[in-house]
Design a binder for these strands. Structure first.
Ligand SMILES: [Mn+2]
Ligand SMILES: [Mn+2]
Ligand SMILES: [Zn+2]
Ligand SMILES: [Zn+2]
Lengths: 142, 142
DNA sequence: TACAGCTTTGCAACTTTGTTGCAAAATAAA
DNA sequence: TTTATTTTGCAACAAAGTTGCAAAGCTGTA
């Protein structure tokens, strides 16, 4: 099974011990198109793991640069796989995020660059987040 | 007192009855540079109003187009006065938001336009939120 | 100014989301 | 296999947000 190997390798590469919860949750992200909230992970894994374990696993993955958090207009925390080469403590997922009003899926538009914005005098920007909401390609074309 | 008159007028104009909590909370927004979280309002008003009343007041103000919510990278809900002429159910606060990493103030950069972003085929954007974090003009110039 | 009708408030109770300490279980290294 | 380290589940807790309902407060009219 190629997926299982990938999962184990990813965990090893990030100096994480290979446990059931980490394998299962990472697998979930690899299988899912779009971002996942904590509650999504909880639903998908059923009673397999404790709520606290899911929190801790997500937190660990964020720290290691395996997943990144996504700010959303409704202020709920969502997570998605890092595609760029993020490393421990150093994320550089500089892409636009899209939330579909119809199916509520959150997409990482990895090929859409963050536009540069000219700020008023005195303001220095370090990080720019862009969240666009509307209709996604799946919901629009039908 | 010109402020008191403004406050009452704003409430009246939005077909809201004039109550202590609404007056006080609206006054707070008028006096404050930057956005406020629910917890900020709670702290600033002390024991004057119940937590639930604050939630309901903020909600009402958002519905009426008096204040708008701001998505933030740390996924906490913030509110700020609408400067544009927003009406019941119709917000058009199309400006950039800035969060200072130093003083944690959230600013509405009302004069900075939202840049237009070219989306991949099939995606239709309706609303774009831009949140920039960095150092604000107050924290930078000293 | 007083009153009736409608709106808002405070309280209680509850849900959801997230955090922490600690012993038991699982993993990794020897 | 054994031991040292890490991770997990549980319990307990804190913070954030929601809902129903009776009491209190507002508004328009008399
Ligand atoms: Mn992303
Ligand atoms: Mn704003
Ligand atoms: Zn969709
Ligand atoms: Zn600042």
């Amino acid at each position: 099974m190629i997926v299982e190997t990938t999962i184990n390798e990813t965990l090893r590469k990030n100096q994480l011990s290979v446990t059931d919860s980490r394998k299962k949750i990472l697998e979930l992200f690899l299988q899912t198109q779009g971002a996942l909230a904590h509650s999504d992970v909880e639903k998908q894994t059923g009673t397999l793991f404790d709520r606290v374990t899911i929190y801790r696993t997500l937190q660990t993955f964020v720290e290691k640069g395996i997943i990144h958090t996504i700010p959303t207009a409704d202020n709920s925390v969502k997570y998605a796989l890092c595609i760029d080469e993020c490393t421990e403590g150093h994320h550089h997922d500089n892409h636009v995020h899209f939330v579909c009003d119809e199916c509520n899926t959150t997409f990482c538009l990895t090929h859409v660059q963050i536009p540069s914005v000219k700020l008023p005098g005195g303001f220095t920007g370090k990080q720019t987040d862009v969240i666009i909401s509307g209709i996604c390609s799946r919901c629009g074309n039908q």
